[in-house]
Amino acid sequence: MSRNRRTRDAAFVLPVVMLLLLMPPYLQVFDQQSFLAGIPLLHVYIFSVWLAGIVVTAWLSRRMVMTSDTNVSASPGPNTTDPAER
């Protein structure tokens, strides 16, 4: 139960954190004319935040689907299995 709750809370916090990191005050910290491995620092920063957000979302959504699956299997419902999900 508390695991579910933590997942839910994390799923709420994640978009908020991403929004903050991708909005001006934080963004301007990396607004410099310097390069990291030949790529502008700002690009590296934005795409890293983006990718990290995607990875964490994937992890969280998998956990949420798994927990809701166990709930569903307890009560029979019209749930067709989806091969692409497994």
Binding site: A58, S61, R62, E85
Partner: peptide, 18 residues
């Protein structure tokens, strides 16, 4: 079709956009 498809899209679609 199914609500759980949204869960997959939650990271796959941002990946597409990125």
């Amino acid at each position: 079709v199914e609500e759980r498809h949204v869960a997959t899209a939650s990271w796959l679609f941002p990946l597409y956009l990125m």
